[in-house]
Amino acid sequence: MQFFFEVLIGGLLSGVMYSFVALGFVMIYKASGVFNFAQGAMVFFAALTFVGFQEMGAPFWLALILAFGAMVLLGIATERIVLRPLVNQPHITLFMATIGLTFFVEGLAQGIWGSTVRGLDLGIQDEPIEWIMDKAGILVSSFDLFAAGVAAALVTLLALFFQYTRVGRALRAVADDHQAALSIGIPLQNIWRIVWAVAGFVALVAGLLWGARNGVQFALTFTALKALPVLILGGFTSVPGAIVGGLIIGSTEKLAEVYLGGYVGGGIDSWFPYVMALAFLLIRPEGLFGEKHIDRV
Protein backbone atom coordinates (compact mmCIF):
# COMPACT_ATOMS: atom_id res chain seq x y z
CA MET A 1 0.00 0.00 0.00
CA GLN A 2 2.84 2.33 0.77
CA PHE A 3 4.21 1.71 -2.67
CA PHE A 4 0.83 2.54 -4.20
CA PHE A 5 0.75 5.91 -2.45
CA GLU A 6 4.28 6.63 -3.42
CA VAL A 7 3.48 6.05 -7.08
CA LEU A 8 0.23 8.01 -6.75
CA ILE A 9 1.87 11.01 -5.13
CA GLY A 10 4.74 10.98 -7.59
CA GLY A 11 2.21 10.82 -10.42
CA LEU A 12 0.07 13.62 -9.04
CA LEU A 13 3.04 15.88 -8.64
CA SER A 14 4.37 15.20 -12.11
CA GLY A 15 0.84 15.78 -13.38
CA VAL A 16 1.12 19.30 -12.04
CA MET A 17 3.86 19.84 -14.58
CA TYR A 18 1.52 18.88 -17.41
CA SER A 19 -1.05 21.23 -16.00
CA PHE A 20 1.29 24.15 -16.45
CA VAL A 21 1.54 23.60 -20.14
CA ALA A 22 -2.18 22.97 -20.42
CA LEU A 23 -2.85 26.27 -18.65
CA GLY A 24 -1.19 28.18 -21.46
CA PHE A 25 -3.43 26.48 -24.01
CA VAL A 26 -6.51 27.23 -21.93
CA MET A 27 -5.68 30.92 -21.60
CA ILE A 28 -5.44 31.53 -25.30
CA TYR A 29 -8.28 29.23 -26.23
CA LYS A 30 -10.59 30.89 -23.74
CA ALA A 31 -9.95 34.40 -24.87
CA SER A 32 -9.48 34.09 -28.59
CA GLY A 33 -10.93 30.72 -29.50
CA VAL A 34 -7.59 29.85 -31.05
CA PHE A 35 -6.08 26.49 -30.30
CA ASN A 36 -2.49 27.58 -30.00
CA PHE A 37 -0.48 24.61 -31.10
CA ALA A 38 2.67 26.67 -30.54
CA GLN A 39 2.29 26.65 -26.75
CA GLY A 40 4.80 23.80 -26.47
CA ALA A 41 7.27 25.70 -28.62
CA MET A 42 6.71 28.73 -26.40
CA VAL A 43 7.63 26.67 -23.35
CA PHE A 44 10.83 25.62 -25.07
CA PHE A 45 11.56 29.16 -26.21
CA ALA A 46 11.01 30.53 -22.71
CA ALA A 47 13.27 28.01 -21.02
CA LEU A 48 15.99 28.45 -23.60
CA THR A 49 15.84 32.22 -23.36
CA PHE A 50 16.09 32.09 -19.59
CA VAL A 51 19.11 29.79 -19.70
CA GLY A 52 20.61 31.86 -22.48
CA PHE A 53 20.47 35.04 -20.42
CA GLN A 54 21.88 33.21 -17.43
CA GLU A 55 24.80 32.02 -19.53
CA MET A 56 25.42 35.60 -20.54
CA GLY A 57 25.94 36.30 -16.87
CA ALA A 58 22.56 37.60 -15.78
CA PRO A 59 21.58 36.71 -12.21
CA PHE A 60 18.42 34.66 -11.63
CA TRP A 61 15.95 37.50 -11.22
CA LEU A 62 17.27 39.54 -14.10
CA ALA A 63 17.19 36.51 -16.38
CA LEU A 64 13.63 35.83 -15.27
CA ILE A 65 12.54 39.36 -16.03
CA LEU A 66 14.35 39.43 -19.37
CA ALA A 67 12.87 36.08 -20.38
CA PHE A 68 9.42 37.31 -19.40
CA GLY A 69 10.00 40.41 -21.49
CA ALA A 70 10.98 38.25 -24.44
CA MET A 71 7.82 36.17 -24.02
CA VAL A 72 5.65 39.29 -23.95
CA LEU A 73 7.32 40.54 -27.11
CA LEU A 74 6.84 37.18 -28.77
CA GLY A 75 3.18 37.21 -27.78
CA ILE A 76 2.55 40.73 -29.05
CA ALA A 77 4.37 40.00 -32.30
CA THR A 78 2.29 36.86 -32.78
CA GLU A 79 -0.92 38.77 -32.24
CA ARG A 80 0.16 41.53 -34.63
CA ILE A 81 1.76 39.49 -37.40
CA VAL A 82 -0.07 36.18 -37.34
CA LEU A 83 -3.49 36.55 -35.74
CA ARG A 84 -4.66 40.03 -36.56
CA PRO A 85 -4.55 39.55 -40.34
CA LEU A 86 -6.53 36.34 -39.85
CA VAL A 87 -9.37 37.75 -37.77
CA ASN A 88 -12.73 36.26 -38.75
CA GLN A 89 -11.15 33.43 -40.68
CA PRO A 90 -12.31 29.89 -39.97
CA HIS A 91 -10.88 28.17 -36.91
CA ILE A 92 -8.94 25.70 -38.97
CA THR A 93 -7.06 28.52 -40.67
CA LEU A 94 -5.98 29.92 -37.34
CA PHE A 95 -5.02 26.47 -36.15
CA MET A 96 -2.84 25.90 -39.20
CA ALA A 97 -1.25 29.28 -38.61
CA THR A 98 -0.28 28.26 -35.09
CA ILE A 99 1.26 25.04 -36.41
CA GLY A 100 3.39 27.15 -38.69
CA LEU A 101 4.18 29.35 -35.74
CA THR A 102 5.34 26.29 -33.79
CA PHE A 103 8.08 25.49 -36.27
CA PHE A 104 9.06 29.12 -36.56
CA VAL A 105 9.39 29.58 -32.80
CA GLU A 106 11.33 26.36 -32.39
CA GLY A 107 13.70 27.42 -35.13
CA LEU A 108 13.99 30.93 -33.76
CA ALA A 109 14.84 29.70 -30.27
CA GLN A 110 17.58 27.40 -31.50
CA GLY A 111 18.79 29.95 -34.01
CA ILE A 112 19.38 32.48 -31.25
CA TRP A 113 20.57 30.28 -28.41
CA GLY A 114 21.93 27.18 -30.12
CA SER A 115 20.66 23.64 -29.87
CA THR A 116 22.85 22.07 -27.19
CA VAL A 117 21.17 20.58 -24.15
CA ARG A 118 21.56 22.81 -21.12
CA GLY A 119 21.02 22.23 -17.47
CA LEU A 120 18.83 24.62 -15.53
CA ASP A 121 19.32 25.05 -11.83
CA LEU A 122 16.55 26.65 -9.82
CA GLY A 123 18.39 25.92 -6.61
CA ILE A 124 15.85 23.33 -5.48
CA GLN A 125 17.00 19.82 -4.75
CA ASP A 126 15.23 17.00 -6.53
CA GLU A 127 15.55 14.73 -3.52
CA PRO A 128 13.15 12.91 -1.24
CA ILE A 129 12.06 14.87 1.80
CA GLU A 130 13.48 13.10 4.80
CA TRP A 131 10.85 13.69 7.46
CA ILE A 132 8.06 12.40 5.21
CA MET A 133 10.16 9.34 4.57
CA ASP A 134 10.69 8.88 8.30
CA LYS A 135 7.07 9.40 9.23
CA ALA A 136 5.19 7.62 6.47
CA GLY A 137 7.89 5.78 4.63
CA ILE A 138 6.91 7.42 1.32
CA LEU A 139 9.35 9.09 -1.02
CA VAL A 140 8.21 12.57 -1.98
CA SER A 141 10.51 14.79 -4.01
CA SER A 142 10.96 18.29 -2.68
CA PHE A 143 11.14 19.56 -6.24
CA ASP A 144 7.76 18.04 -7.08
CA LEU A 145 6.32 19.59 -3.96
CA PHE A 146 7.75 22.95 -4.92
CA ALA A 147 6.21 22.65 -8.41
CA ALA A 148 2.86 21.82 -6.87
CA GLY A 149 3.10 24.89 -4.67
CA VAL A 150 3.88 27.12 -7.62
CA ALA A 151 0.98 25.59 -9.53
CA ALA A 152 -1.44 26.24 -6.71
CA ALA A 153 -0.33 29.84 -6.43
CA LEU A 154 -0.48 30.43 -10.16
CA VAL A 155 -3.91 28.91 -10.56
CA THR A 156 -5.34 30.89 -7.68
CA LEU A 157 -3.92 34.03 -9.19
CA LEU A 158 -5.32 33.31 -12.63
CA ALA A 159 -8.71 32.29 -11.31
CA LEU A 160 -8.98 35.51 -9.31
CA PHE A 161 -7.84 37.50 -12.32
CA PHE A 162 -10.43 35.93 -14.62
CA GLN A 163 -13.25 36.07 -12.13
CA TYR A 164 -12.98 39.43 -10.46
CA THR A 165 -11.04 41.94 -12.52
CA ARG A 166 -12.33 44.19 -15.25
CA VAL A 167 -9.82 42.86 -17.76
CA GLY A 168 -10.47 39.26 -16.72
CA ARG A 169 -14.18 39.73 -17.27
CA ALA A 170 -13.49 41.29 -20.63
CA LEU A 171 -11.31 38.30 -21.53
CA ARG A 172 -14.15 35.92 -20.79
CA ALA A 173 -16.56 38.14 -22.69
CA VAL A 174 -14.30 38.12 -25.73
CA ALA A 175 -14.07 34.36 -25.48
CA ASP A 176 -17.84 34.09 -25.56
CA ASP A 177 -18.63 36.45 -28.39
CA HIS A 178 -16.09 38.57 -30.29
CA GLN A 179 -18.67 40.61 -32.10
CA ALA A 180 -20.64 41.52 -29.03
CA ALA A 181 -17.46 42.39 -27.17
CA LEU A 182 -16.48 44.66 -30.03
CA SER A 183 -19.91 46.27 -30.05
CA ILE A 184 -19.69 47.35 -26.42
CA GLY A 185 -16.29 48.87 -27.00
CA ILE A 186 -13.90 46.23 -25.70
CA PRO A 187 -10.73 46.68 -27.74
CA LEU A 188 -10.08 43.15 -28.97
CA GLN A 189 -6.49 43.72 -29.93
CA ASN A 190 -5.49 44.94 -26.48
CA ILE A 191 -7.23 41.96 -24.95
CA TRP A 192 -5.46 39.53 -27.22
CA ARG A 193 -2.12 41.11 -26.47
CA ILE A 194 -2.76 40.69 -22.76
CA VAL A 195 -3.76 37.07 -23.26
CA TRP A 196 -0.65 36.25 -25.23
CA ALA A 197 1.50 37.95 -22.65
CA VAL A 198 -0.12 35.95 -19.84
CA ALA A 199 0.21 32.74 -21.85
CA GLY A 200 3.86 33.64 -22.36
CA PHE A 201 4.28 34.00 -18.62
CA VAL A 202 2.69 30.63 -17.98
CA ALA A 203 4.95 29.11 -20.65
CA LEU A 204 7.95 30.60 -18.88
CA VAL A 205 7.00 29.06 -15.54
CA ALA A 206 6.38 25.71 -17.22
CA GLY A 207 9.65 25.97 -19.11
CA LEU A 208 11.62 26.68 -15.96
CA LEU A 209 10.17 23.75 -14.06
CA TRP A 210 10.44 21.30 -16.93
CA GLY A 211 13.88 22.59 -17.80
CA ALA A 212 15.07 22.14 -14.25
CA ARG A 213 13.74 18.62 -14.19
CA ASN A 214 14.74 17.28 -17.61
CA GLY A 215 17.24 19.77 -18.91
CA VAL A 216 16.49 22.42 -21.48
CA GLN A 217 16.31 20.57 -24.76
CA PHE A 218 14.22 20.14 -27.83
CA ALA A 219 12.33 17.23 -26.27
CA LEU A 220 10.50 19.81 -24.14
CA THR A 221 8.23 20.50 -27.09
CA PHE A 222 7.12 16.84 -27.10
CA THR A 223 6.50 16.75 -23.39
CA ALA A 224 4.29 19.75 -23.97
CA LEU A 225 2.06 17.65 -26.21
CA LYS A 226 1.01 15.71 -23.11
CA ALA A 227 -1.07 18.77 -22.46
CA LEU A 228 -3.51 17.62 -25.13
CA PRO A 229 -4.99 14.68 -23.20
CA VAL A 230 -4.96 16.90 -20.13
CA LEU A 231 -7.08 19.43 -21.98
CA ILE A 232 -9.49 16.85 -23.31
CA LEU A 233 -9.98 15.54 -19.80
CA GLY A 234 -10.20 18.86 -18.04
CA GLY A 235 -11.97 20.84 -20.72
CA PHE A 236 -10.43 23.36 -23.08
CA THR A 237 -11.97 26.35 -21.37
CA SER A 238 -11.36 25.71 -17.71
CA VAL A 239 -8.40 26.79 -15.62
CA PRO A 240 -9.26 24.41 -12.76
CA GLY A 241 -9.90 21.78 -15.43
CA ALA A 242 -6.34 22.07 -16.66
CA ILE A 243 -5.08 21.41 -13.15
CA VAL A 244 -7.39 18.52 -12.33
CA GLY A 245 -6.84 17.05 -15.79
CA GLY A 246 -3.09 17.24 -15.25
CA LEU A 247 -3.38 15.49 -11.89
CA ILE A 248 -5.50 12.71 -13.32
CA ILE A 249 -3.26 12.17 -16.33
CA GLY A 250 -0.10 12.32 -14.23
CA SER A 251 -1.29 9.85 -11.61
CA THR A 252 -3.00 7.37 -13.94
CA GLU A 253 -0.10 7.18 -16.33
CA LYS A 254 2.28 6.36 -13.48
CA LEU A 255 -0.10 3.88 -11.86
CA ALA A 256 -0.78 2.25 -15.23
CA GLU A 257 2.91 2.00 -15.93
CA VAL A 258 3.61 0.38 -12.59
CA TYR A 259 0.64 -1.97 -12.31
CA LEU A 260 -0.30 -2.70 -15.92
CA GLY A 261 2.97 -2.01 -17.68
CA GLY A 262 4.38 -5.38 -16.75
CA TYR A 263 1.77 -7.28 -18.74
CA VAL A 264 2.39 -5.48 -22.00
CA GLY A 265 6.08 -4.97 -21.81
CA GLY A 266 6.19 -1.57 -20.13
CA GLY A 267 6.56 1.94 -21.50
CA ILE A 268 2.83 2.49 -21.58
CA ASP A 269 2.96 5.85 -19.85
CA SER A 270 3.82 7.46 -23.16
CA TRP A 271 0.56 6.46 -24.83
CA PHE A 272 -1.81 5.66 -21.97
CA PRO A 273 -2.96 9.29 -21.53
CA TYR A 274 -4.00 9.48 -25.17
CA VAL A 275 -6.10 6.34 -24.85
CA MET A 276 -7.76 7.82 -21.79
CA ALA A 277 -8.43 11.03 -23.66
CA LEU A 278 -9.98 9.11 -26.50
CA ALA A 279 -12.25 7.20 -24.15
CA PHE A 280 -13.16 10.43 -22.45
CA LEU A 281 -14.09 12.11 -25.71
CA LEU A 282 -16.73 9.46 -26.23
CA ILE A 283 -18.28 9.97 -22.82
CA ARG A 284 -17.95 13.66 -22.10
CA PRO A 285 -16.62 15.64 -25.04
CA GLU A 286 -16.60 18.99 -23.26
CA GLY A 287 -14.29 17.65 -20.56
CA LEU A 288 -14.79 17.53 -16.83
CA PHE A 289 -14.96 21.26 -16.33
CA GLY A 290 -15.38 22.57 -19.84
CA GLU A 291 -18.15 24.96 -20.64
CA LYS A 292 -21.14 23.21 -22.01
CA HIS A 293 -22.17 24.50 -25.34
CA ILE A 294 -25.33 26.44 -24.57
CA ASP A 295 -27.89 25.96 -27.27
CA ARG A 296 -31.30 27.51 -27.09
CA VAL A 297 -33.86 25.25 -28.65
Binding site: R169, R172, D176, A181, S183, I294
Partner: peptide, 15 residues
Protein backbone atom coordinates in the same frame (compact mmCIF):
# COMPACT_ATOMS: atom_id res chain seq x y z
CA UNK B 1 -25.49 38.53 -28.31
CA UNK B 2 -25.23 38.23 -24.55
CA UNK B 3 -22.12 36.58 -23.23
CA UNK B 4 -23.69 33.18 -22.67
CA UNK B 5 -21.28 31.88 -20.04
CA UNK B 6 -21.19 35.04 -17.97
CA UNK B 7 -23.84 35.77 -15.37
CA UNK B 8 -26.34 38.54 -16.08
CA UNK B 9 -24.52 40.84 -13.69
CA UNK B 10 -21.15 40.09 -15.24
CA UNK B 11 -22.65 40.81 -18.63
CA UNK B 12 -23.77 44.19 -17.37
CA UNK B 13 -20.37 44.89 -15.84
CA UNK B 14 -18.56 44.24 -19.12
CA UNK B 15 -20.68 47.03 -20.58
Amino acid sequence: HCFAHLSIEENLLTG
